[in-house]
């Protein structure tokens, strides 16, 4: 990886720090108060926060604006998630230029969940470029000072490029995913964030396998705020299986079994800490992962205890 570290995230990784990133999810709204509030809550515990871009194909507020506002109003660096689902190469370049103008230093390149899965299922998905080609596009802009067609850009684009990977597969489908990741790193990805994982052994095997790419990777974790979220994850998120023990423990915290709100919240927090702290310690101590990407959307208040002394 020869590209300079432009972002705090990349600087921390290059300095050898074990980094934490959080996640902010803007939804179908004109207000960003809750995003600012969440960012405030996590700002002391993470080096940067991802800002999601229409997850699951839903039509939400454009992620560039909250990415900018969180940096400007909260002082927390953001990782602007940008999918190729909704933008052709012209729109992608326009957004990268705009992101540069407002001081964004990280872009996570994503293909995006297909529009057919979202809340406007008849929408025409774009996919003019795929994710690797989007990395190529940003690489052109950052490293060569041109757009992807070779036209000169006025001024410098200083952005580090993120890429996502889904380790939740086995056999040849996982081999294909790994080979694709290698392609993305060769094209110019600076860092990688994984999809949510729950299986430590599989995760360690996966991390070992991709060491050859020599690209910093942040392991994706998703603390479970309640049983409903856990069962949603288990059922609907591709390839993600929440461990049965964890599901069992969380099931006991359902309102009907545990009517006291305070007790319920404390128990859920303890369950998450019991599961994720040893998980993260293992990742930190016994793998070459660069950090943890913690997708605790609306559960930032767990961060102080979750990351303590890690």
């Amino acid at each position: 990886m020869s590209r300079p570290a432009y972002s705090n995230l990349m600087k921390a990784i290059k300095d050898g720090k074990f980094v934490f990133t959080g996640e902010l999810e803007p939804v179908k709204t004109v207000s960003l108060d809750y995003i600012i509030h969440s960012a405030e809550m996590m700002k002391d515990y993470v080096v940067a926060a991802n800002v999601t871009d229409g997850p699951q194909g839903f039509a939400y507020i454009n992620s560039l604006v909250p990415s900018m506002k969180v940096q400007q109003e909260v002082g927390l660096e953001t990782i602007y998630q940008c999918t190729v689902r909704d933008r052709n190469r012209i729109a992608l370049m326009a957004d990268v230029l705009a992101a540069s103008n407002v001081g964004i230093k990280n872009i996570l390149t994503l293909s995006g969940d297909h529009a057919a899965l979202g809340d406007n299922p008849g929408a025409k998905p774009v996919y003019d470029l795929d994710c690797s080609q989007f990395i190529d596009l940003i690489s052109h802009m950052v490293d060569k000072g041109t757009d992807i067609h070779g036209n000169d850009i006025d001024g410098k684009v200083e952005i580090n490029i993120g890429s996502a990977v889904n380790p939740n597969n086995e056999g040849e489908p996982l081999e294909a995913e790994i080979a694709k990741l290698g392609r993305k790193v060769r094209v110019g990805a600076d860092f990688i964030q994984t999809q949510t994982v729950f299986d430590i052994d599989k995760t360690k095997d996966f991390l070992k396998e991709i060491e050859k790419f020599n690209c910093p990777i942040l392991v994706g974790l998703f603390p479970l705020k309640n049983y409903g979220i856990a069962s949603y994850f288990d059922k609907y998120i591709p390839g993600v299986n929440v461990p049965k023990d964890l599901m069992k423990r969380l099931k006991k915290t359902k309102k009907k079994y545990m009517p006291d709100k305070k007790e319920r919240k404390k128990t859920i927090a303890d369950i998450n800490l019991d599961f994720f702290r040893p998980f993260m310690k293992e990742i930190k101590q016994n793998t070459k992962a660069a950090g943890i990407h913690c997708m605790a959307v609306h559960y930032e208040k767990l961060f102080p205890r979750l990351f303590k002394d890690l």
Binding site: C131, E177, K180, Q195, G239
Partner: peptide, 9 residues
């Protein structure tokens, strides 16, 4: 340059 992250098995 697939596959994308949306494939499972």
């Amino acid at each position: 340059n697939g596959p994308c992250g949306g494939q499972i098995d």
